[in-house]
């Protein structure tokens, strides 16, 4: 019967071998892996910092725009403009031709037709019913 305790006393050498220089090469391999993970974690830390800075900037912009916008709204709401606020000679500098041009019918073909109808002594009521003056 095989006995483990007596066998233990006869074990003289380690049965397990490794490739040549295995432990030295493995140490180098692991240390280079470790350096890589160090760089990656540093990069990740940098990304975290960039993310925080970006978030803070976005938050500041958001807060600024909210306050700025609300102050504009308040300003607008506070402006109760009445006709007395407009200077009495405000419109004096605007030439009358500008108004005339604005008041002419935009559709020239329509204007020609109306002119023709007026010349033909068609009543204005009838023209107004069918055309925009």
């Amino acid at each position: 019967m095989f006995n483990l305790e007596s066998h233990k006393k006869t074990i003289q050498k380690n049965s397990f071998a490794t490739p040549e220089n295995y432990f030295e090469l493995n140490k180098e391999k692991v240390l280079s892996e470790v350096r890589k993970t160090k760089i990656i974690s540093q990069k990740n830390n940098n990304y975290a910092v960039y993310y925080l800075i970006g978030s803070a900037a976005a938050l500041l912009i958001l807060i600024f725009s909210i306050f700025n916008n609300s102050s504009e709204v308040i300003n607008t709401q506070n402006q109760n403009i009445s006709s007395t606020d407009i200077p009495f000679d405000y419109f004096d500098d605007i030439p009358l031709e500008e108004f005339e041009n604005e008041l002419l019918p935009k559709d020239t073909s329509n204007a020609l037709t109306i002119n023709y109808l007026i010349e033909e002594e068609i009543s204005l009521e009838l023209i107004a019913e069918n055309y925009t003056l």
Partner: peptide
């Protein structure tokens, strides 16, 4: 090639 034990060691 990375095991240098005898028959008993292999069985163990």
């Amino acid at each position: 090639v990375f095991f240098e034990g005898d028959e008993i060691e292999r069985k163990l």
